[in-house]
Each structure stands twice: as C-alpha cells, then as structure tokens.
Design a protein around this nucleic acid. Structure first.
Lengths: 159, 159
DNA sequence: TATGAAATTGAAGCAAA
DNA sequence: TTTGCTTCAATTTCATA
C-alpha cells in the first residue's frame, strides 16, 4: 500500500479511469500510446497496489429523491478516544452521512449529509446529535448549490 | 432525465453498483433474484435515464502524494451574483479543490481541498483567498482522518 | 412489457514469443 | 512489450408469460 512510482503513462491512465471507469483498455491505449494489453496490465497493478481504491457508480441524488444536502460541524463534549471511535462507527453506519472528516480546530467533525427533505434531516439530527450526550454542539449549513462534487484528484501529469 | 420510477429491484441493483461498479450482472442477479440478462437490461436503463450518472475509479490520495486534506469555510465580502459566479468559476478551475458547496449560514462556501503538503496548501490559499479581495475571511481545518469519504447515497430499499 | 434461455459479440485475462 | 488464444461477461435474439 506504500507509494509505488507512477510514470506519466500511469497518470494518463488514471486520468481516464477517474473520468470514466468503463473506458476500455483499447481506447486508453490509443490515447496514451500503448497496446490494450499493456494498459490492462498497468490497470491491474494500479488496482493491486491500491492506487485505484475502488470503482463505483455515481448516482444522481435528484433521481433518487434526495433533494437536500447539508454541511454539519460537530463539536464533541470531551475528546477521548473511545468516544471518538464510537462516533466514527455511528457515522459509518448512518446512510444519511455521505462524508465525514475528523478535523483540527473548533469543530471536531465535518459531515456532509443528504436527506429527502427537512423532516428527514431533523429525524437524522435527533438520532445522531440530540440523543448523543457526547455531542456538545453542532451547526448546520444548508447546501444551496453543489458547486463542485468530485472524487477527481489532480494528477500532475494529467492528460 | 426526469425521475423514472424505481422498484425495489432497481434499488438493490444500484446498491450493489455504488459499492462496486465492477460487480458482474450474474452476481447481482443471484442477490436480487433475477437473471443476469434482466439485470443488464435494468442497468442499461438506469444509465440511460441518468440515475447512474457515471462510473468512476476512486483513487488513493496518499498513493498520489496528496497527503493532506483540508476543510475550508469561506466568507465572502459582499454577496452579489457576479462575484459569487466568479468564485464558482475559480473553484471549478482549481485542481486542489475537490469539493465546493455554496451554503447558508455564516460561511458562504465550504471547500474540501487536497494538497501535497502544507507549503502546497499555503500557495493555494494565497492564490485563492489572499489575492481575492472578495474573500473577507476563511477558516481552515486540517483533516486528521477521512472517517467516511463516499458518494454513496442512502437507498430506501437498500440491500 | 418484462422476463429467462440460448446464441453472439466483445473485452479482459493469459501465455508464449 | 506485443501477438494471438482462451475465458468470461455484456449484449442481442427469441420465445414466453
């Protein structure tokens, strides 16, 4: 899992795949100047070495009726490891939580939460925050626009 | 692109694919009780109707030398449309910005930013905030742990 | 109209040069 | 690394409910 050295061909391949994971090896090969087989072998290595963590389908929140997104800053009561770990587990189990970061600063956690509507979000806050004695305080921001939502990472040699 | 009705089989299929887009139709079929062909047909429809927006490779930031992640809350000087739009465009063009949300509340924008190191982040802040007269204030939180990073949406009928 | 079974196309995986 | 062969999965066809 330690950093393998990636040449510019690897980066070009990754750039294709993080755009569209279904791009076939031959197409990539044409772009980067490599045979399909060579591309496949490189992709296999990139998967095995963990550079490609996984391949996922990105779903449309709107099509699924998840119209609302929130950013929530959470402050915990007292930071002890057991408590933080419990919160982590809770977050992982909660379907509404799309993302969670443990951060430095005033807040302890930053959450990105989706919900069907306000009512759905309120149910979530009750379950997640009000009923949790370890949560001291939380502030909610309603997302008006998802200006940029991506897992796309900047690749130095990006095609 | 308008919301098609999704039955519980569709939701089960989506649940598989947003976990692992490479799951083969036969495996999904066994899980949900459908033939491989039927699963494929449904997947095709889900793609065409835009419920599945795209399929992407999720890359490891660490493996790519992007060791640091930040959450930045940005307050703008005065909210006028032209200015907000300019900031939006800047965000979209910035490779370091992985995500950006326009939100209600004290902050105007919430950014998730990746950088190689602190120096890289500082260069970014100079370019993005200090040199931008429209940015009144910003607060940075360093991400210590990416507890949950996903685009995984909660599916009511989730398998 | 959507399904399952069988046949076809196509891409990925593998071996040998 | 490429070439060609094999295997496996996606797609199409077709009969059926």
């Amino acid at each position: 899992m330690h950093t393998p050295d990636l040449d510019h061909l690897d980066l070009a391949i990754l750039s294709c795949l993080q755009e569209d994971a279904r791009t076939i090896a031959e197409t990539i090969g044409t772009k980067v100047g490599l045979s399909a087989a060579a591309v496949q072998r490189r992709i296999k290595r990139l998967r095995e070495s963990g550079v490609i963590e996984r391949e996922v389908a990105v779903l449309s929140p709107r099509a699924l009726g998840l119209t609302m997104t929130f950013v929530v800053l959470v402050e915990m009561e007292r930071e002890n490891l057991a408590m933080l770990d419990a919160f982590r587990r809770q977050v992982l189990a909660e379907d509404n939580v799309q993302q969670c970061y443990y951060v430095t600063g005033t807040a302890d956690f930053v959450l990105v939460v989706t919900a069907e509507d306000m009512a759905g979000f309120e149910t979530f806050t009750r379950r997640m925050f009000f009923e949790n004695p370890n949560v001291r305080h939380f502030t909610t921001s309603v997302v008006m626009d998802r200006v940029k939502v991506g897992l796309t990472l900047p690749l130095s040699g990006g095609a």
